[in-house]
Design a protein around this nucleic acid. Sequence first.
DNA 1: TGCTATACTGTAACCGCTTACAGTAAGCGC
DNA 2: GCGCTTACTGTAAGCGGTTACAGTATAGCA
Lengths: 342, 342
Amino acid sequence: MPRAKSSVTIADVAREAGVSTATVSRVINENAPVSAATAMRVRAAIERLNYRPSAAARGLASRRTHLIGLLAEEISAPFFAPILRGIEKGAREAGLGLLIHCTQGTPAANSGYRRPLGPHNTDGILVFAGGLQEEELVYLTSLEFPVVLLHRSPPDSLDIPAVTVENKRGARELVRHLIEVHGYRRIAFLRGPEGHEDSYWREQGYREALAAADIPIEPQLLAYGGFDQKIAQQAVTAWLEQGVKPDAIFAGDDEAATGTIMALQAAGLRVPEDVAVVGFDDVYLAHPLMPPLTTVHVPIEAVGREGVRELVRLIAGGEPEPLTLLPTELVIRRSCGCQEEA
Amino acid sequence: MPRAKSSVTIADVAREAGVSTATVSRVINENAPVSAATAMRVRAAIERLNYRPSAAARGLASRRTHLIGLLAEEISAPFFAPILRGIEKGAREAGLGLLIHCTQGTPAANSGYRRPLGPHNTDGILVFAGGLQEEELVYLTSLEFPVVLLHRSPPDSLDIPAVTVENKRGARELVRHLIEVHGYRRIAFLRGPEGHEDSYWREQGYREALAAADIPIEPQLLAYGGFDQKIAQQAVTAWLEQGVKPDAIFAGDDEAATGTIMALQAAGLRVPEDVAVVGFDDVYLAHPLMPPLTTVHVPIEAVGREGVRELVRLIAGGEPEPLTLLPTELVIRRSCGCQEEA
DNA sequence: TGCTATACTGTAACCGCTTACAGTAAGCGC
DNA sequence: GCGCTTACTGTAAGCGGTTACAGTATAGCA
């Protein structure tokens, strides 16, 4: 394979400016004193030659890639977009590039010497929910490689910093609202995917709220909604066909809430008059939905931003913050039966 | 700065397997014959040492980063998610990493030697809409650096491959449906952002459809919707306050359609009985909207996939396909006045 | 004045891989 | 048996930066 035509290198700049390559490197990285006059000459040369340092060479020599990675199972709308935006913004502000990779149905691809993201090509990685298997986390930890978990807590005995939100509290408040303000007692819950922590904690919050109001859990009011519009739609339709008709449905997340509303309306039921529906996340579609969805606001973008902040701290060798729990907030709209707030 | 503790290198593998580093490199890259027995020994050594080649060293030596970049103005939901998914999937299948960067309000950051994405750190880039200024495109072209444009056509006299969709045809069919099936004559249009090509071509399609039906353009039925829910909402509210009441509103995109529906309903008007509304894109929220939105389906994910395919071809030195126009398709739901299709 | 700290700069040794080049051994046609 | 391929392997020269180390000049200080 023929060598590509070589682009301008640091040696060219050095020659042009009449200095050594070391000096050029120093003015670029600003990590050693260089006289103002020399620096100016060098900068002029860089400008003139349109020089751009090779990331590979720089990375090889300095052992820093200036890249962080994001590993996720799936880039699924609409939850992923805001978190990605937060991460991208954080990375940009920290002067880091962002490498993203989905593990979507390719667990095997994540091993062997073709592993997509790791110490060989990034300075640290962010793992969103199930984006990486536990054993891989163990391995990276043994290398002291910086990793931050998003919407997931670390495996036992591994102290990997995690950033997530107050799912349990948010769910509890939400269900409490349903009980105390609206007097609903038969409140159904649609679970999210198995093993998904957000789902787990939301269910705990749901249970706590019911327990606090002395309402027993009715097993037939618990079903699988998968944090997915279609699945939730089917689950709700199945309920209706079986004659199960709750006062209210806590759909687990907004996507499932959307499917829930569609199923209810398709069956001729009115929301919230016949059945109230609430979601979780407050993603983009919650507001324009008809009726506007009562939900719990999750600071999704902030999770991404905080994740990067934590990762940057780890990369710099700082002390990790074991857990960052971002607050959630009840957002009352109309699907619970309230009139829209002012 | 102390050198980080060195990880296992190709030399370690070579020693472990009793071969030269060249041989190890050859079994990894499979680009030269290696005897089966040797290859096996090398692979075992790699496995045993948990060796992972350094991307930087590899890139420096081979002048290939195995990375492609994506440059966009903003990671805005909900249009961005599917295109990103298509790109990520395409990149993954091609064995390339994906580096993403937003230029969001930082045009200056895109010059100087800190430029985020370019020949110094990627093998080629994808530019989404206004993600990169024209002069930068000119520069990259002069370097023969692989670039593919998404939802944007190349500047004059630059033959950069572009991938986009049949906006004009889609808009024309959509408006024709409004005219021919429903008999609407006063059809308003909400433009997208200035300079946005999708917006431009959709307006052309709108104009052509009206012209074909001999309906004159009424300037007061054209307004700025910004491909944005809030802006569209305000624009429609303004119309209503001025007593402008069209038969139907073509909102430019689904986001604007959402805002349009919200504004109309807030004013006590029924959709589609009083005013019909149609969008464009068929993004995630179009279906669950109430009423379900009649729109034009845009194969967003396919744009991303095709973009990567084209970029990979360019990187491999293949002949570029100047323009890839992906088909759009009318999706009839209820907001136009139709009963939902079967 | 002599000595030392400081500011600046250059030399050159890597960083970990790829690959041109060269060499060896075996296979093949005559 | 000889020259020529072909298959395989090793040697070593980069790739384009960073940075330890050393050197020079100047300033500060006793």
